[in-house]
């Protein structure tokens, strides 16, 4: 409407006008003097007002009554709702858990068993495996401190790898490449470290009898026949709930013993069977009470 580029009118003019001193105001008042609303309008408006007020007085004041009582109504509604909500929370355990933000109970999911593995393997083997693990747990605490003290100075090359055998893929890669690196040049070590992770870092323990990692999936059923229990265990443990249970159990087993077993398995994967056999025999000497895992039993046969 009024562009800023236009020249600004005089502020004095506005001030005078606002204070009623402007000639425009005087002229306006002079011009409008005596001009008033027609009398018939007065009659119409006043008559309408009288009628309206009369009607309002005769009308039941239901709306006004509600308006007066709206705060008590609102308060009562809030109280009723709060009480009923509290009652629900107290009486309904599910609602109680929701209200208290309690984590739901962990329900173990069904073990995922692939059809080709489920057929040859009985559930008893899984159970036996679990019992084996539990036996590991029983002696874990007593052995752990002693084993750490003995193991590290006694095994200069394998102990660091065992200590670092945490589930991190990077550390797996380091551990796998470590023996090779000791024999190879520094350049080969760097190459191995920069190699893609899948070849060097399996996230789960590999199937024991597999001679090479790159073996095709078509060969898997044959391997399963050779070591069905281990394969079943691997697949069972890959399900969520049992995976969590596995983590819990393994944390209870002496770390050094487990790490050593993992190292032996990796030797098998890399084809160093003699070295693995020797390591397993040493392992048996170190932990004579421990049963040899089923997948490694064939090394001793």
């Amino acid at each position: 409407m009024s562009g800023p580029e236009r020249k600004a009118p005089d502020d004095k003019l506005l001030e005078d006008f606002l204070e009623g001193r402007s000639p425009a105001s005087r002229a306006w008042r002079e011009a409008m003097r005596g001009e008033s609303a027609p009398p018939e309008l007065d009659d119409a408006v006043l008559g309408m007002a009288r009628e309206e007020i009369k009607t309002a007085a005769a009308r039941p004041a239901s709306r006004d009554r509600f308006r007066d009582r709206r705060w008590p109504f609102a308060l009562a509604a809030v109280l009723v709702l709060s009480f009923s909500t509290l009652l629900t929370i107290v009486q309904d355990p599910v609602a109680h858990k929701d209200a208290m933000m309690v984590a739901p109970d962990v329900v173990p999911t069904e073990a995922v068993i692939l059809p080709e593995a489920a057929a040859p393997v009985a559930a008893a083997e899984v159970q036996a495996e679990a019992q084996q693990r539990q036996a590991f747990e029983a002696e874990r605490k007593s052995m752990q401190a002693q084993r750490r003290m003995e193991d590290r100075p006694a095994k200069p090359s394998s102990a660091p790898a065992a200590a670092d055998a945490a589930p991190s893929p990077g550390s797996y890669a380091d551990a796998v490449q470590e023996p090779a690196a000791s024999a190879a040049s520094a350049g080969a070590e760097a190459e191995a470290l920069s190699a893609p992770a899948p070849a060097a870092a399996p996230a789960v323990p590999p199937p024991p009898p597999a001679p090479v990692m790159e073996e095709s999936r078509e060969a898997a059923p044959a391997e399963l026949k050779a070591a069905p229990a281990a394969e079943l265990r691997r697949r069972v443990l890959s399900s969520d709930s049992l995976g969590a249970a596995k983590l819990k159990r393994e944390s209870a087993v002496p770390e050094a013993a487990l790490a050593e077993l993992e190292r032996i398995r990796r030797m098998l994967v890399e084809g160093r069977e003699d070295e693995a056999r020797r390591a397993l025999e040493a392992w048996r000497k170190d932990w004579p009470e421990r049963p040899v895992p089923a997948d490694l039993q064939r090394l001793l046969d």
Partner: peptide, 21 residues
């Protein structure tokens, strides 16, 4: 509002310049 009034007064003054010095 001030702006509107300023322009209105300027216009009135312009048109009534003979009686509005």
């Amino acid at each position: 509002v001030k702006s509107r009034l300023r322009y209105a007064l300027a216009k009135l003054r312009q048109e009534l310049s003979d009686v509005w010095p």
